[in-house]
Structures are given as C-alpha cells and as structure tokens.
Simulated assay, not measured.
Amino acid sequence: MNTNTQKPFEHGFMLSLLLLAIGGLIWLFTPFISALFLSLMIAIATFSKYEQLQNRFSSNNSALLTTLLVTIVLILPLGYILLISTLEISTSIQAINHDFDFDKITQIFNQTVAKLPLSDAIKSTLSTALNNNLGTFLISVKDFSIVILKSIVSLSSHFILFLIIVTFTLYYFYIDGKKIVKRIKSLSPLETHLNDILLNQFKNLSMTLVGSVFLIALLQGVIFSITIMIIGLPALYFGIAMALASFIPLLGGLIIWLPLSLYLYAQGQTTDTLIVALSGAVVLGFIVDNLARPSIIKLLSKKSNGANTLDHTLITVLSTLAGIIQFGILGLFIGPIIAAMAISIFDIYSIKYNKDRFDS
C-alpha cells in the first residue's frame, strides 16, 4: 500500500528532474544553439555518405573524412558568404541610419508616379496618397530592415567561433548519431511507431531544407548575377544579396529586384528597368520560386521518403522571417524546421488520439 501511494510522487519527481535537466542543458548551450542546430541538420543530410565510407574505413576515419568533405564543400563557402555579407550589411546599416533621406526618397517616388502611363487625375490622387502615408511606411520599412540586418550580422560577427563549433560537433554527430537517436527513443514515452514517425520527419525535413535552400539560392544568385552583369552593375554583390534573400520564399527576391528596378526607372534607364523587372518577376519570381522551388522540394522529399510538410507557404514564409529575427541568418533554417515539426506533432497527436477514440 505504501509503495503504491509513493509511485505517483516518484513518477512526478522523476519527470520534474528530467524537465529540469533538459531545461538546464538548453540554457547552458543557448550561446551555441544556432551552430548546434546547423551542425545537426548537415549531419542528418549527409549521414548516408558517412555510412558509405564506413564500409571501407573505421568509424572515426569515416567521420573525419566526411567532416573534411562537408567543411570544404559547404561550411567554408557558407563562412565566406557570412563574412562578405557581414561587411556589406554593416555598411548598409550605417547607410540606412545616417543617409536616410526622406525628401530624396519622396522625390524618387513622385518622379516614378509622374512617369506612369496613367491619367493626371489618377496620378494626382496617387501622389497625394503617397505623400500622406509614405513617411510612416518608410520608417516602418527602415526599422524592420535594420532589425533583419542586425539579426544577420549578430551571427556573422563571430563566424570563426561559429564555424569551429559546427565542424567540431559535426564530427561527433557522425560518430554518436545512432547512440543519440537510441537514447531519445528510450527516454520518449511515445509508442515506437510514433517515435519513428517524428524522428523520420525531422530527418526528412533537414535533408529537404538544406538541399532545397542551397540549390534555390545558387540558382537565383547565378541568374540575377547574369542579369546585373548585362546592365553593367556589380554582379557579385547583387548575386550574393539575391542568394541570401532567396532563402525567404516568395518575398526574398522581391526586396532586391523591386527597389533596384524602381531606382533605375526613376533615373530614366527604362531598358535596364525592364531587364531587371522581367528577370525578377518572371524568371526568379514565377519560374524559380513558383515552379522550380516546389519541384526541387518534392524531388528531395521523394528521395528522403518523407511527407512534404513545407507545402504550407504562409507558415513557411512567416516562420522564416520570425526565425531570422530570433536566430539571425540561421533562422532561415531553424524557423521553418520548428514550424514544420509543430505540424508533424499535430499530425502525430491526430494519429494517436483519433485512433484511441475509434478504438474506444
């Protein structure tokens, strides 16, 4: 009798200790969360290569070779992009803060409206509406842009330590990956098949996100670089900017090519404006974002044998923006992963309790 009365308290106490331990670890590793998360996603996406090398080498040597390969092919280029983007973004933040000329921007907008193929009455109404609301809108855009840019710089400013942590943890994720998964399953109170669904979903999402994001970024960056090269502007700068912006579905490319095309139009460069607008709206916006991106995601989902949870466009866009604000540039990955995993957990809840309802 005494044992039975103590069991609920013992269970509750152990659960409290477990939650306290998890909370303590999360608090302890908070400075490295972004690096650990990226390292985990890369390890999951490339784990099959590590297993292939295990057929020929020992576990330690296979982990070392895979880590070196991933570092050369993926982590060092990412570090270079972060370094370049830090320098450019820091300059942009200073320019936005010190050179923000409201009168000049208003003049550009008025010149753009004046050149539109509309009647004088419509132009007058549009110009009045812009002048009345443009100030508040521009200040909001300025503040939001600075928040996003500072979030990106916050990671890039200590990217050397970040790269060291990613590389170091990647090696041990290869070696201890199966042990970690086994330990998570043993601690989880869920049924075995539900644990498998959840872990497989995280694996598939990581592989799909890492692959699709970098492929789309490369594609959009190269296409926009060629476009910018045609009109005689610095191709590398705008190509990197477009590649980084393209991580945000639908909205990313728009924040690069639309202001540029409006500026070129206000300067009277109609041909260049047309080239940039067509490249941005048709090639990048429609063909790449609306046709190529879903196709690449579906292809990678099929290869990883996973459900395509990234089809929820609104949630993907919002979680990407929120992820950038919360985690810096790696929020481009972390935000959608968290949102997609939440959807997966809702699905598991439905599978578990709808089944129980039908069984009862």
Rank of each mutant, 00 (worst) to 15 (best):
R293D: 08
S124F: 13
I165M: 01
Y50N: 00
D196C: 06
L64R: 12
F214Q: 06
P249Q: 07
F100L: 11
I345G: 00
L18K: 15
F238K: 06
S212H: 07
M207Y: 15
A121F: 11
N290F: 05
M207F: 15
I26N: 05
D120A: 15
L190M: 13
D101C: 01
G221P: 09
F137G: 00
A114K: 13
Y50I: 00
L163K: 08
A340L: 02
I22N: 10
N305L: 11
A35L: 03
D311M: 08
E191N: 12
A241W: 02
A43F: 04
N133R: 03
F168K: 02
L233M: 15
W27N: 15
G23S: 13
T169N: 04
M14P: 02
T192I: 14
G24K: 09
I84S: 07
M207D: 14
I146D: 06
K178G: 06
N204H: 13
S48Q: 14
I146W: 03
F137P: 00
P249E: 03
F32N: 13
Y263D: 06
A292Y: 01
L20H: 13
P336F: 04
I44A: 14
T273R: 06
Q220I: 09
L155E: 10
K49P: 07
Q267Y: 09
K150G: 08
L278F: 15
S157T: 12
S156E: 04
N131L: 12
T320I: 06
L250P: 05
D311S: 15
I33K: 14
I240K: 02
G268Q: 05
I105F: 14
I325L: 05
N290M: 13
Q107K: 14
L149W: 01
I84G: 04
M242P: 00
I184G: 02
A43D: 04
A129F: 10
L284M: 02
T169F: 04
T91R: 11
I334E: 07
V166A: 03
F159R: 11
L17P: 01
F333S: 03
M341E: 02
I84K: 10
L149N: 06
A245P: 01
F202G: 07
P117W: 01
N4V: 12
E191P: 09
F224L: 03
L69E: 12
F102S: 12
T167K: 04
N290E: 07
L205N: 09
I351W: 05
H98E: 15
D176F: 11
N110G: 04
N132P: 05
L170G: 02
Y174E: 00
Y237G: 05
I216Y: 03
S188Y: 01
Q326C: 15
N132K: 10
I175R: 03
I26H: 06
I351P: 03
I152N: 03
L321R: 01
L64D: 08
G268K: 08
P294S: 03
L254I: 15
I343K: 15
I351T: 12
T169V: 05
L260C: 00
D143I: 05
S360T: 08
P8C: 02
G335V: 00
F358S: 10
F327Q: 04
T125H: 12
K352V: 07
D143S: 05
V317G: 02
L219W: 06
L310R: 02
L138F: 08
T112G: 07
L40Q: 12
T167N: 12
P117G: 02
Y349C: 07
T271Y: 13
L274N: 11
T273A: 05
I148E: 00
T112A: 11
N61I: 13
N132F: 06
